[in-house]
Design a protein around this nucleic acid. Structure first.
Length: 209
DNA sequence: TTGTCGATTGAG
DNA sequence: TCAATCGACAAT
């Protein structure tokens, strides 16, 4: 089943479940790695406080405001890259964060890109691990995933499948929305972690009696 | 120009 | 529970 851009040009909330089970192939570095997406999160742009596009266009998030089906990679915590697929129509920022996948092909390459040995199921479990095994970094932002000549491409969708939803991982803003989507019974799905510490007021308790 | 914080991971 | 580690962005 091929993927057309129109399908991805919908709001992130509609695109996210469609990407579950889809195949993503990277031939970056001359080595091919193929994965099957098992977990994603929707980010709805200027209306979503947790989105990088919430405060409007910047150099970093510019690709989110363009056409759907492009790669958006961002650097986080001083050491990790995470990958998104842009969606919605041009002018409207939205993207789907790729949180986890199952390695379908190229496991030796994936292992070679991983500092410490991990089981096959955990190699791409978590957004930074997923980007790592595919060799993705900032320089790949903007790649057209629907272009057969691209080093990273979405090749096919999975069959429509049952899925689960829940809160997004690791965010503090708009944490109440169940905008995380995953396939049940998939060992590659990452474990849930609540968002980081909220700003602590000057009156915080110290524990002293 | 400076300071704060983050769509994470791995070790203790 | 916490450190690693640096780019983006808001506040000077």
């Amino acid at each position: 089943m091929s993927i057309d851009r129109e399908l991805l040009s919908r709001p992130a909330l509609q695109v996210a479940p469609v990407l579950l089970g889809a195949t993503l192939v990277s031939s970056i570095g001359g080595a091919e790695v193929a994965v099957r997406i098992t977990e994603v999160e929707a980010y709805e742009g200027t209306a979503d406080p947790a989105s990088h596009a919430f405060r409007g266009p910047t150099r970093r998030n510019a690709v989110m405001f363009g056409e759907a089906g492009r790669l958006y990679c961002y650097f986080i915590y001083g050491m990790h890259w995470c990958a998104n697929i842009t969606c919605a129509l041009p002018g409207t920022a939205a993207a789907v964060l790729l949180r986890a996948a199952q390695i379908e092909d190229g496991e030796p390459v994936a292992q070679a890109r991983t500092p410490n040995p991990l089981s096959r199921a955990k190699l791409a479990s978590g957004p930074a691990r997923l980007a790592r095994v595919l060799g993705l970094a900032g320089e790949h932002t903007g790649l057209d995933l629907l272009d057969a000549g691209s080093p990273v491409r979405l090749t096919e969708l999975g069959a429509p499948a049952d899925y689960r939803t829940g809160p997004r991982v690791g965010i503090t803003a708009a944490a109440e929305h169940p905008w995380r989507f995953w396939l049940p019974d998939e060992p590659s799905v990452s474990s849930y972690r609540p968002g980081g510490r909220k700003r602590v007021a000057a009156t915080r308790q110290t524990g002293a009696p």
